[in-house]
Design a protein around this nucleic acid. Sequence first.
DNA 1: CTTAATGTTCCCCA
DNA 2: TTGGGGAACATTAA
Length: 245
Amino acid sequence: MVRTVAPHLAGRRIVEVRAFTHKPWAQSLGKASGQTIRAVRRYGKFILLELDTGLLAIHLGMTGKLLAGGSRGPYTRAVLVCDGATVLFDDVRQFGSVRWLAREPARLGPDALEVSAEEFLGRLRAHKGRLKALLLNQSFLRGLGDIYADEALFRARVHPLAARLGRERALRLHEAIVNVLSEAVAKGGSSVSDYVDADGRPGWFQFEHRVYRRTGEPCQVCGTPIKRMLVAQRGTHYCPRCQRK
DNA sequence: CTTAATGTTCCCCA
DNA sequence: TTGGGGAACATTAA
């Protein structure tokens, strides 16, 4: 999303940010008017627009989208009007937000795409919870969500309920996380239900999903049916044979 | 009618 | 203090 929205916004002056919701986040948006967007970058799951003073932090929640151009629809919750460009923030379920912040969101762990193997191993050692829950915890690691947690665990052959990994498997998991995210970004993300980029184009990494929402289908490695269970209130997909605790 | 859905946060309890 | 369970938030689709 950052890669497709950045060309529309970087360097432009914000005329106004108008919200069409009474969610609390809509309050702080006045601060953005008149400021120039210095840079557009990702911070974990946040999309940050760096302004002259502070930043706009956008979180897409479950169904949020940023759409360049286009006109207001029934799920448009905010509009970012710039000199020469307009970007809509559409969000069916309204778990997403756009807010002005003085600085980067705090209390988040290292980025899942940038964390070194050593730091990852060190942080893993400090926790004893279930791996799936840990990977979803943004203060442990920022940037992983349900899809890529499941896909990374499968690729690393680690059971979602595993805890306290040995060095070998921890290294495998770190590698799987970086690989799965890099590949997903290269393929434009996973369009499973709502996601499209800022130009309205779906991604195609969903065709590479090996377990996510493939309950009952044969595992591509061993043929065992993929199972689904709940972990941390999230649907969790895994191969009961390939992924051991 | 029920369940699940790319997420986060807060409350209760061990 | 850490973790697990469940609920809440809001809406659609199967």
